[in-house]
Amino acid sequence: MILEHTIRSLQFKFQAGTSRGVMTEHPVCFIKISLLDHQEYGLGEAAPLPKLSEETLDEVLAFLPRLQEMIKSVELPKSTEEVYTLCRRLVPQELPSLVFALETALLDLLYGGKRQLFNNEFFQEKKDIPINGLIWMGDADFMREQVDRKIAAGFKCIKLKVGAIDFDAELDLIQYIREKAPKTIIRVDANGGFPSNEVFARLSELEKYDVHSIEQPIMPGQLEAMQLICKRSPIPIALDEELIGYHETSRRLELLKMIHPQFIILKPTLIGGLQATMDWIKVAQNLGIGWWLTSALESNIGLNAIAQFAGEFPDNGYQGLGTGQLYSNNVVSPLEINGEFLGYNQSVNWEKVLFN
């Protein structure tokens, strides 16, 4: 097989605020895998996030020449499981976004290079995926404007980033959502932004608004503190960044048994790809822990892979897969957001990504 790559700097349509700062662009690496003397090819995307992912984009690029050499002598796997096994053999686990990219490209090629990874009802246009409406941080007017648009579009689950601006202002926005749409499911994501000495007071305030759950209230790595929070919190806790860096099933089991959150948030780019995501799901289910999938600011190439994977679990509630509209130069794709649903429109052609 032949592996090629190219870089695209995805440009945000607005300043995307999180508790870790403001993003205006996101450089990502697209990979293309093809067979000798064949026109079909598979696409994948490695899109590590600065200050969050285990690896940097430079580290991904530094490993690619070695991967290109290794893959020259490898035959295309014949099944999904063989793809996963090959990817674990070829790419270090410390490069989780590249594992995800390689899995995606090989599954795509396995299915004939049609950007299909799974043959399920989502890809067949028979069942769309319900998604949450994400509200980005900004001033009060900007955030209320986003809320109004999401409610008008029909979103029944709204996710709000908290922890970076004045907490009282964030509570005012949650109250605004409750007044505008009383039955809306409200999820909040602190991205580790709550001070440890204020976390229980803030959780108690959030409880007043019937918040569904909060993602990562404190920074990861504080295992005993997080265990106590999950045990005593008046609202359900979802682990997100806490999952990064756990590459063995035994360590994943140990983490979840110790902390025992109510939910985990699964981002294939950050945790090591689709096979790793499946492993987390099995561990969580055995412990009675809920889960949902979330994209991590990938282009539509990465989002397509996560959405098709989500299509394997058609009744798992609201997923965090609505980021495809963030960029002015995203890859044109059949992915479409209709109201609170992400769908796949077979009549729309994929943009042909150019590789040098």
Rank of each mutant, 00 (worst) to 15 (best):
D166M: 07
P234C: 11
P182N: 05
I174S: 15
L239D: 00
A181L: 04
A190G: 01
R178I: 04
F194A: 07
P220L: 09
E241F: 00
R252Y: 04
K180H: 12
D168W: 12
D168Y: 12
E198W: 13
A201T: 10
E205C: 05
L256Q: 13
Q216W: 07
T249Q: 15
I235W: 03
I214S: 02
K257L: 00
I186D: 14
V188P: 03
R202Y: 08
I214G: 01
V162K: 06
H260C: 00
L239C: 00
S233I: 06
A190Q: 01
N191I: 05
R232Q: 10
L171S: 02
A238R: 12
S233Q: 05
K231I: 14
E207H: 06
Q216K: 00
G245V: 11
I214M: 14
L239E: 03
A238Q: 01
L228F: 02
G193R: 10
A225E: 09
S204C: 10
K257S: 01
Q227M: 13
L203F: 03
G163C: 02
I235F: 04
N197L: 02
A169Y: 05
V211P: 15
C230K: 03
R178M: 13
Y176V: 08
I185S: 03
A238I: 11
S233F: 05
L171V: 02
K180Y: 08
E179W: 06
E248R: 03
Q216P: 04
N197W: 13
I185P: 11
D189M: 09
P234R: 14
T184Q: 05
L173M: 06
V199D: 13
A225W: 01
H247Q: 04
R252N: 05
E254N: 11
K257A: 01
D210E: 14
